[in-house]
C-alpha cells in the first residue's frame, strides 16, 4: 500500500515536471508578459517605445557614445538576445561583426533573420549609396547600401509601421493598442516632418564636411551636400595627409560646418576647423546623443536647431 502511494507521488511529480517543461517550451511569450525588444541602437529602442508604450520592455544594446559597428558580442548582449521577442537593428551589415554571433549562440528561433521577431530597418526603406561593384580598397563600404537610415525621418515613419505590424503579430491580444499608437505617432510625426522641412528650407544646397558617411540620409533629406569626409576611406581614421588634402579641396567653397557624431573623434575636425575657420557642428546622431535629445522628435528638433543656428 505504502509502496503504491510513493509510486503515485513520484508519478505525479514526474508528470508535473513534464507539464511544466512542456509549458516552458510551448509558450515562449505568455500573454501577460511584456514583449522583450532588443534594439541594436537607441533610435530603434526609442521608436519601439513610441509604438509599444507600456506593453514592451526595451533593451538598448548600445548607447549614443558607441560606434555600433565596432562593438563586441559581449556576454550581457547574449543574455538579452536569449530573452528577446523582437530584435530591431539597422541591418545592411552595420552590425555584422557581432549580431550574427549573438543570433548563433542565443538559441532563440523567433529572432533569427527572416523570422517574425527580426526587423532590419534597411530592408524596409529606400537605401542610398547602393554599390554594384565593391572592393575593400574602397574602405569599409557596405555593398547593400548605407546602413545609417534613421536620420531621414521618413524612414522612421516607414519602420514604425513595420514595428506596429510585428508587435500586433507577436502580442496579438494588444494589436489594437499598437495600431492606435502607431497611427497617432504617424500623424504627429508627419506634422513634425513638415515643420522640420520648412525650418530647413534655407539649408538646401549648403555644403558641409563630414567625418564618416553617417549623415548621408540626413543630408539627402535636407538637400545638403557633403563635399568631403575626414576619413580617407570609410572605416579608416583621419590622418594628417588626408586632412591636408581636405583643406585644399574645400578652399573657395562655402562650407557651413563639419558634422560630428558623439562617437566620432573630434581631433581631426578641430584641426580643420581652426585651419579653415569653419565651425564644428556636433549633432546628437541618435537618442541620447546629447543632453537634449531625449526622444526621437526632440533629437530631430535639436539637430535642425543646431544646423540652423550656424551662419
Amino acid at each position: 500500500m505504502v509502496h503504491i502511494i510513493i509510486k503515485g507521488t513520484k508519478m505525479k511529480k514526474l508528470s508535473l515536471m513534464i507539464i511544466g517543461l512542456g509549458m516552458l517550451l510551448a509558450s515562449p511569450m505568455p500573454a501577460f508578459a511584456k514583449v522583450n525588444i532588443f534594439a541594436c541602437a537607441p533610435e530603434w529602442g526609442a521608436l519601439a517605445k513610441e509604438i509599444g508604450g507600456d506593453k514592451v520592455d526595451i533593451y538598448n544594446a548600445s548607447n549614443a557614445n558607441q560606434d555600433i559597428h565596432h562593438m563586441r558580442a559581449k556576454p550581457s548582449l547574449l543574455a538579452a538576445m536569449r530573452k528577446a521577442d523582437l530584435v530591431i537593428c539597422s541591418g545592411a551589415s552595420l552590425e555584422i561583426g557581432w549580431l550574427p554571433i549573438l543570433l548563433n549562440k542565443a538559441g532563440n528561433n523567433q529572432v533569427q533573420d527572416g523570422g517574425i521577431g527580426s526587423i532590419m530597418a534597411s530592408d524596409y526603406v529606400p537605401l542610398l549609396e547602393v554599390m554594384q561593384n565593391v572592393d575593400r580598397s574602397m574602405g569599409h563600404v557596405h555593398p547593400e547600401g548605407n546602413p545609417h537610415v534613421h536620420l531621414d525621418p521618413n524612414n522612421i515613419a516607414l519602420v514604425s509601421k513595420v514595428i506596429a505590424e510585428r508587435l500586433s503579430e507577436i502580442d496579438s491580444s494588444h494589436s489594437s493598442y499598437y495600431e492606435a499608437r502607431q497611427s497617432s505617432f504617424d500623424e504627429n510625426w508627419a506634422k513634425a516632418v513638415t515643420q522640420w522641412e520648412t525650418q530647413a528650407a534655407n539649408l538646401r544646397g549648403a555644403n558641409v564636411v563630414v567625418y564618416h558617411k553617417s549623415w548621408t540620409y540626413l543630408l539627402n533629406w535636407l538637400g545638403i551636400q557633403a563635399v568631403a569626409s575626414l576619413e580617407p576611406k570609410p572605416g579608416i581614421p583621419p590622418n594628417a595627409s588626408h586632412l591636408e588634402k581636405v583643406l585644399q579641396d574645400i578652399q573657395g567653397k562655402n562650407i557651413k560646418g563639419i558634422l560630428i557624431a558623439p562617437f566620432e573623434n573630434e581631433k581631426g575636425a578641430k584641426w580643420l576647423s581652426e585651419k579653415a575657420n569653419i565651425p564644428i557642428i556636433k549633432l546628437p546622431f541618435t537618442v541620447g546623443g546629447n543632453n537634449q535629445a531625449t526622444d526621437l522628435k526632440i533629437m530631430f528638433d535639436d539637430t535642425l536647431n543646431r544646423l540652423n543656428n550656424i551662419d
Partner: peptide, 11 residues
C-alpha cells in the same frame, strides 16, 4: 553544423 532553431537557448 550547428542548430539555429532550437528553443530555450539551446544549441
Amino acid at each position: 553544423v550547428a542548430t539555429t532553431a532550437l528553443p530555450a537557448g539551446l544549441e
